[in-house]
Design a protein around this nucleic acid. Structure first.
Lengths: 214, 214
DNA sequence: TAAGTACTACACTGATTAGTGTACCTTGAA
DNA sequence: TTCAAGGTACACTAATCAGTGTAGTACTTA
């Protein structure tokens, strides 16, 4: 099994229609429940065309997962830049950043439904593929956040020993908390409750990483 | 669909064999992949007997999930009592507590594999049932931890405003961090790495909730 | 016009699976 | 001994689904 179909094949619009549909259906139904018939129907494409573009159900799933991860990573990178480039009020900026980051989950519902599916399938996914997925998605999140925190710390607004840990902790205290409670958006949570969780998470983070002003 | 089979039916040893086997098979294969034939075979029981005890695949799954959650909750309660009743060295005690709590995940591999399955199915599980699951499992974890932290704070070893938040944060910074990286134990992580994650999580928690000693 | 590429419609295979029906066996209590 | 509850073995239905094969169509390029 290869990670990606290397040579381009077929009409790009068809390929796109297939991956879009696959994302929706995989997300809605999960890997096993999702049927190739449903995907081809949703894509408005013959089932044969699906199999001409992708050798396998498995390969289609992984392609969609990795491409989606890249899209989301790009979106999150933008959010980081928007909120963490110029810091005005650190607490408020971190809260706004985290709220936007949480909102990204709901604005890519298909992808994050798919993330749930991957986590469920973790034990059935070959380790190298799983590694590729982690590298493309979750990990890059931390890796990109860390330098921002480092820079903020260099300006004396935070006291950070290990920027990677700090990035992980900020993520855990905000996004992960919300994601756990909403099952990645599957269970709705009122916006004010989300804001409450994020705010208390950011405050805890700041208490932990604020510079000791003597 | 009812939450539990109310009236007892059949020989308890058979019922037990079925739920044990179901836990293993659901955990190993996930809900959809797991077949009732496989479960009955694993239980050493006729398939008909399975259907005499449980009306449905779905009902069997939910029964197993809820019963497992209760077992794990009981085990975690013991761990809390062991480590958080008498505090000697707060940091060390919290680290030991968290490591034991992480170890509980690996010592109930079938159940936590099943937890992954539930999280994947979250969108397909009727909300009241999902609520029952959350109440039986994850939530009780926080609810039970909070009073311990409250008591420690009352002794002046922590400065806690909202004990529930503090419990959530401690959990996030330790167990959740490890669980995310290991996919609930599906991907192995060396013990020393686990210890590193937990230690840095506890330290961050303490920096955040340590009393300000003027 | 000829050839090649991509897509479609559709039938089909082979395998798996949830759930049922039934006839028969085992065991313990009355 | 009799009876009834619970278990077993096994055959069976109806449905679903991954993946293939094929004959034909549309569009592009030489």
């Amino acid at each position: 099994m290869t990670l990606r179909q290397p040579e381009p094949y077929g009409r790009p619009d068809k390929r796109r229609a297939i991956t879009q549909a696959a994302r929706r259906v995989f997300g809605r139904d999960g890997y096993t429940r999702a049927s190739m018939d449903a995907i081809s129907a949703e894509a408005g494409v013959s089932k044969r065309t699906v199999y001409n573009h992708f050798t396998d159900k498995e390969q289609l799933f992984l392609t969609v997962a990795l491409e989606g991860a890249e899209e989301v990573t790009a979106a999150i990178a933008q959010i980081m830049d928007r909120h963490l480039h110029k810091i005005v009020d650190l607490e408020q900026d971190l809260i706004d950043f985290s709220l936007d980051r949480v909102a990204a989950v709901t604005s890519f519902p298909d992808h994050f439904a798919l993330v749930r599916a991957i986590e469920a399938e973790a034990a059935h996914i070959p380790p190298p593929i799983l590694k590729a997925w982690i590298a493309a998605g979750p990990q890059t999140g931390h890796l990109r956040l860390a330098p921002y925190l480092r820079r903020i710390a260099d300006r004396g607004l935070l006291e950070i020993d290990d920027a990677d840990s700090a990035a992980a902790h900020l993520t855990l205290l905000t996004i992960t908390d919300v994601n756990q409670q909403t099952f990645y958006g599957a269970v709705p949570l009122p916006q004010e409750e989300i804001a409450r969780l994020v705010t208390r998470g950011v405050r805890a983070f700041l208490r932990s990483y604020a510079p000791t002003t003597p």
